[in-house]
Design a protein around this nucleic acid. Structure first.
Lengths: 234, 234
DNA sequence: TAGATTGTTAATCGATTAACAATC
DNA sequence: TAGATTGTTAATCGATTAACAATC
């Protein structure tokens, strides 16, 4: 009943998936997680569309970028689809990460269970403040930043999480590139100039997000006022 | 020399700015900040475009959504433009925020100087764990979550920062809506069902961002391998 | 005035949605 | 087989870029 034999599209065809599609994948992942928890084994694009408040067309287009995950006349097998999307998202890639900056933010990130849930292992924290070093943080060792190169000579590190002081970000990022890291997860709102073939940079712009919230609230407020005025005239 | 008399577009014309434009504004804000720090008083769209690695067309289009901020034949006055964008972003709106969840994440957010820099005042932290209450966090008082309604009766609160346990998010969010909050800044990766006219929700999906990083690294890796294979054949 | 650069319209590009043939 | 639902092509929509007239 389930088309487990479906092959993924050839690399050629899979190439150049638009960023818009990639950015939607984690959301599919989350909803499929929930469906599995509920015990639902089958879903159609239109049912999932209703759940996620998107069009069924978009779902079918998105999933088809990677190959035929569904079965005509049946729908999608939830477990199979989840496995495929997990694969594409690299949940089982087993990347190792270090967090650079053992301040409030860095330590908070270690305590969030986010990394292990996404298959990323935090292998160490580094701090410019020598004092912080030596102490563990939720079982993860903290080293002085000077030890970074030595540590990487002994341990494979794929991802650098940038949570250090703003003024050190660019220099630290360059050291990560030189050490052959594959990705940077940058929390500091400092723009990094690397292209994807040097290193993949994914930014968390907290400040930007807060301003967008501010802005949307302001615009919402004036809009409300406008429509009130309109109805006053009636 | 400077067109300070330029009026903003009429509300009618300013209405319905696309989300794409709104999401770019904080980046303009950051670059203008830097230009001011450097002491640059004037900039053309093409110079700014080069700096920000976007097209000059896009900059002119974006800024014109809100009205004529520039002067033909001259360019843009950096300070004036910065003031206008700050205004649109609501930097001086003076919103009050409470953080719900005084765990590692909530406390880390208080310590980041982000809020004050963006003109948002954190007036209190709340925690489901009664124990945490009573203690201050960087000068911000911590209360038990049961006190939320009482606190809001005495203090104007505009924004709720959701950093509490995943299982409490939906209930807490509903309480914020009932209390008339204008916005929610949601860190917990739990989707909230509100439309803008109920409350503005801005999400920080840390888990999603990490997976996108993972995914982009994986795709980068296979791409590299592909091009290596290609060059092997030559 | 001549040169520069904006504001704005028109052209292009990409992403989303609709439609339907293929097929389970 | 008939009904359902995908995979995929075509149509629409929106966002980005190019071009140029307006104007400082």
């Amino acid at each position: 009943m389930n088309n487990q034999d479906n092959i993924m599209k050839s690399p050629d065809k899979q190439q150049n998936i638009s960023p818009a599609v990639i950015r939607r994948l984690p959301r599919y992942y989350r909803y499929l997680c929930e469906l599995i928890a509920r015990g639902q084994t089958k879903i159609s694009s239109s049912e999932l569309a209703k759940l996620m408040k998107v069009t069924a067309s978009q779902i079918r287009q998105d999933l088809n970028c990677f190959g035929g995950f569904g079965m005509q006349g049946y729908g999608y097998n939830v477990n199979y689809l989840f496995a495929k999307i997990s694969d594409i998202l690299g949940v089982s890639a087993g990347f190792n990460a270090v967090i650079i900056g053992a301040g409030d933010l860095g330590r908070a990130l270690v305590h969030l269970s986010m990394f292990e849930k996404r298959g990323v292992n935090i292998v160490a924290l580094f701090d410019t403040d020598g004092e912080a070093a030596g102490k563990d943080c939720a079982g993860v060792p903290v080293y002085p930043i000077d030890e970074l190169e030595n540590f990487c000579a002994e341990n494979r590190v794929d991802i650098g999480v940038i949570a250090c002081d703003k003024k050190h970000v660019k220099a630290i990022a360059q050291r990560c590139v030189d050490l052959g890291f594959k990705g940077l997860w940058n929390y500091m709102g400092v723009e990094l100039p690397y292209s994807d073939d040097e290193i993949v940079v994914e930014n968390i712009h907290l400040g930007d997000s807060l301003m967008i919230l501010n802005c949307r609230i302001c615009r919402n407020d004036t809009e409300d006022k406008d429509s009130e005025e309109e109805s006053d005239q009636n």
